[in-house]
Amino acid sequence: MLELAAELLDRVRSGTPYVVATVTSVQGSAPRRPGSSLVVDADGAVLGNVSGGCVDSAVVQACQEMLRSDRSPRNLEFGYTDDDAIGVGLTCGGTIGIFLRHHDPRAEPDLAAEPDLESAYADATRDAPVAVATVVRGPRSDLGRMIVVRPGRPHEGTLGDERRDEVAAAHVTDALQTGTSGTVDIGVADSHRREPSTLLVECHTPAPRLLVFGAIDHAAALAQVGAFLGYRVTVCDARATFATPARFPYADEVVVDWPHRHLQTQHLDGRAAICVLTHDPKFDVPLLTAALRLPVGYVGAMGSRRTHEQRLVRLREAGLTEHELGRLHSPIGLDLGARTPQETALSIAAEIVAQRLGGSGAPLRSGIARPRSTSRSQESR
């Protein structure tokens, strides 16, 4: 529901009751992931979706029924069978679980079951890190209980007892560090309860960082793709003539500085991606020496295989270990046969996504990973 934080903040402040339907599980192929939400409010407005259209109408109907009568939290499941091809289900063949919960801003607040969602929504709208964890499976008396977690601050709300809150808050804090929404199972031993339960953890984190070093045409194309994917994009180059905002309209910032010096001023997490497009040893070696020692998710460098081998020699001389060198994606990108800067940017972005999500980069129809080769646009670099 945090993906709809701005709209829900309006409902809370106006005192409008609403029901949130959130995807909690996905099996097989499905268009939306855990944490995706659909909201129906008491005025009849519908926000978001949970299936891209396949079962949204049925979910809206269930939300409307909850608004009218039984407000108890509940789980729904939708799938697809050949025997009922025109019925309610997912045409893509998957199965999704959905959790429905009623919210009434006008009701007397009960912080034991309802933390301050207004402040959580407000945090998300101003791009501050925040997470909401909800019990979606477990003892019936616990369904719908919620806690709100922010980095470095005590959690709000309770899941039923102090020990369970501590365990849940630790799991949610871990999820916040990666910005990953999904479910977490809390075992009997963890929380000293007789029945296990499942939490839906919804995270909002600031946009991940994409740092592109080297103010070349490929950097302009990569900045555009990175912005489309939701990254906060920085382009950096020591040459003021080339590093201008006019050349990189899709970058959030364009920095004139020595690349390694600028990198050392940044606070980056495991979602950050660093792309080195300079292919000049005086820039590359100090920059990659610093980058490969940071806890970032991706470090890639442009250049042919020959350039890469020469670069490895220099990086070893600079003191990098084989483990650190093993993190380097070079030649950068997946083998798409790219020729233009735009095609090369697509191949780089595809590799970043595959690295982040654990994909193989292989064609889905084959299920077999193919060895990467240098894209044609890098052969001469």
Rank of each mutant, 00 (worst) to 15 (best):
V132A: 01
P341S: 11
V296R: 01
T173P: 07
V50G: 03
V296K: 00
L4G: 01
P208N: 06
A131V: 00
L294I: 05
G89F: 01
R106Q: 15
R11H: 04
L336N: 06
V313L: 01
D217H: 15
S69Y: 09
T158N: 05
A318L: 02
L211S: 10
R305Y: 13
I96P: 00
H262K: 12
S72Y: 05
A175N: 09
T91H: 12
A62G: 05
P151N: 00
P196A: 14
A21H: 02
A45C: 03
A362H: 12
L222F: 11
G152H: 06
P139E: 11
I86G: 13
D257H: 15
T278L: 01
A170T: 10
L176C: 05
I186M: 10
D335K: 03
G144P: 03
V313S: 00
D82L: 14
L176W: 03
V233W: 15
G89K: 06
P17R: 14
Y298T: 05
I186R: 06
T278C: 01
G367Y: 12
A290P: 02
H262M: 14
A107W: 09
Y250M: 14
A58F: 01
H218Q: 14
G187S: 15
P206F: 04
G214R: 12
L2R: 02
L222V: 12
Q310E: 14
Q61N: 12
S373P: 03
V285G: 01
S377E: 00
D280P: 05
R311Q: 10
E309L: 07
A175V: 00
A124M: 10
V23H: 00
T95P: 13
L292P: 06
Q61K: 10
L211N: 11
M302Q: 10
T22P: 05
G28M: 10
D70I: 11
P281Q: 08
V55T: 10
N75V: 04
G337A: 02
I368R: 14
A291H: 04
L9H: 15
R137W: 07
A272Y: 03
D174Y: 08
A301K: 05
D83Q: 15
V299H: 06
G144Q: 11
R74F: 02
R163Q: 15
S330R: 08
E65C: 08
P17Y: 11
T158V: 06
